[in-house]
Design a protein around this nucleic acid. Structure first.
Lengths: 187, 187, 187, 187
DNA sequence: CATGAATGAGCATTCATTCAT
DNA sequence: CATGAATGAATGCTCATTCAT
């Protein structure tokens, strides 16, 4: 692996574990087996490392949304696939998620990144719901605030799964059911 | 106001704004109009200030739950009142909430505090749902994972309202409706 | 006991245990059951407390020398009594001794105090030896440097006894014998 | 000279002059012509500097004892050479000696270091005396307490020479004579 | 590309001393 | 005489960043 990628990799792990402020350049260099100065050969400064990590996550999420879009078939199962897909995506990118969730309140690049994710998520959900409503597979609801509700739910689920894994107990199938009962009219 | 309370007050504001690590004792003292040494006459160390803030929040949440408990009357409106109450409580204690939400991932006292809140919230929701189910005002659902879903939703709603107030657009009435559709059988 | 004396008493104990710098006015006040401000009602500053302790030791040593002077009878046993007396005096005033021994190198009042003690000890030993030589009970030796040697020996013995009590093993009778062999001609 | 050695050198001087607590990292850095942070590139913390100084002294004393051991020839002059050698060693390592003497009562690393020195000194003296007694060049005395007496004497002599150089007046030849009279039988 | 010594501003914390009550 | 809250300068230590090699 290239030095730059090793730095990013170690940084991802460390920031996820002990936070952005807790991750010192000295410790990062040591754990990556390089000298402290080398970090500055590849990144402008410490924040730049975070920016790269956030950009990577952004790209991964874009690709993920693309996959979801192409895979949808518009039936009433769509909503489930979307929710489960997002949970799966969270688990697949745990470290990145931890980084964003633990820092968006305090670091503006993280806040910016999280804002983008949330906006795209909201847009995607809105779009899906509008389509499904047109096809008559879900109830007639107010799209915008309902999409926000779904975003909120997903945000909360991720956090519960990330930070209280002990409590989890695999409650997400029931969360999906919860959403289905609210959106899909009974047969 | 007593010096100790002034310190707590300013600290609450500052930590909510710029985080625990961003809040330096020097800046805190300056903004409180006292000398740095005075802080240590009232608190053991910087973390002790955080502990006091968290304890205060804990007490306020306990009192809030007590109010909710005594006010419930078991009809199908209960669930709405609980959700709206929690949203209201969040808005009334915005600074404290920001502090917990922005630090529970990294500071163990905050994590501990948040864990307690979540557990109590979960327990309270479970209890309410069980009661409502017995009275036949909500559907028969699996209590535990559904309560977790509600906790997750609330956690997400709070964050959206706290950190993306611009996006909010007062979506919480629709969030309540979302929950009602999922839990309350149609007339 | 008067407040002033209680402060002095606690201070003596604390400085002997943890040194002058280690003894904070806050801890001293707490242990003496008074407020920090009260200390400054009785003493000009922290150093003033030390000065009082040193003065007390000075007085006690003066009185001790007076006793020795009046008790001496000039026979060859005198030197033993003087040495043993000094060791005894050290043990009786352990706290004060620890204070002086641990601080004379760094605090000028202590250095001054120690200087006075050493000079008086030297003078006293010289005087005794001169007398004993006149009476023919000890060998003819050079008084001044021999008295210094005795002072040095005593200084060392005190330290060994104070700081390495485990090692001691009651070696002072042999130390006295060591001196006797050097000074008293064999029968 | 390497930066690390310069720091050690200046620290030795400063600690000898104004004590360990009196020597601040800021003053040390300034006097060494480096920044404060540089100190921590070479030493873990302030105590670590002291530890290095003590270790150096330990090594020097070990080497010194080795020299003494190889140079002894067992005649009745041995004891003189040992005493004079120790006095000389003290003068050659005045700063280190001052550091140990001024801090062993309060700092545990210093205490530990001093304890080691005293034990080795005691052991070495005992060994020499036993040898000399076997060769019949000194009197039959109780080895252990007499060795302690010599240690005490040496400890006291060092202090007098280090802290009261004005008073000294080169009394150590007479101190050696004092010991010789006590240990070596008259011809 | 890589190094690692050096920097210096910044941090939490301590403590002798003061002073209004 | 006594209090105890307040002070503020000082301390040991950290850490992102620079730069000569």
């Amino acid at each position: 692996m290239k030095t730059k990628d090793r730095i990013l990799d170690i940084a991802r792990t460390m920031i996820a574990e002990i936070g952005y402020h807790g991750t010192t350049t000295a410790a990062l260099a040591k754990r990556a087996g390089i000298s402290e100065g080398t970090i500055y050969r590849h990144f402008e400064n410490k924040e730049d490392i975070l920016l790269h990590i956030l950009q990577d996550l952004d790209d991964k999420y874009s690709a993920f949304l693309q996959t979801l879009r192409s895979a949808r078939d518009g039936d009433h199962g769509t909503i489930e696939r979307i929710l489960q897909g997002h949970v799966q995506f969270s688990m697949d990118n745990l470290a990145d998620l931890k980084i964003v969730l633990s820092s968006y309140a305090l670091l503006s690049p993280s806040k910016q990144s999280m804002t983008t994710v949330i906006e795209r998520m909201h847009e995607f959900f809105s779009e899906c719901m509008r389509r499904s409503m047109e096809m008559g597979v879900i109830r007639e609801v107010e799209v915008d605030p309902t999409a926000k509700t779904l975003v909120a739910l997903l945000l909360g689920v991720m956090q519960l799964k990330v930070y209280w894994p002990d409590m989890d107990g695999d409650f997400d199938p029931q969360a999906v059911l919860f959403v289905r009962r609210s959106l899909v009219p009974e047969a």
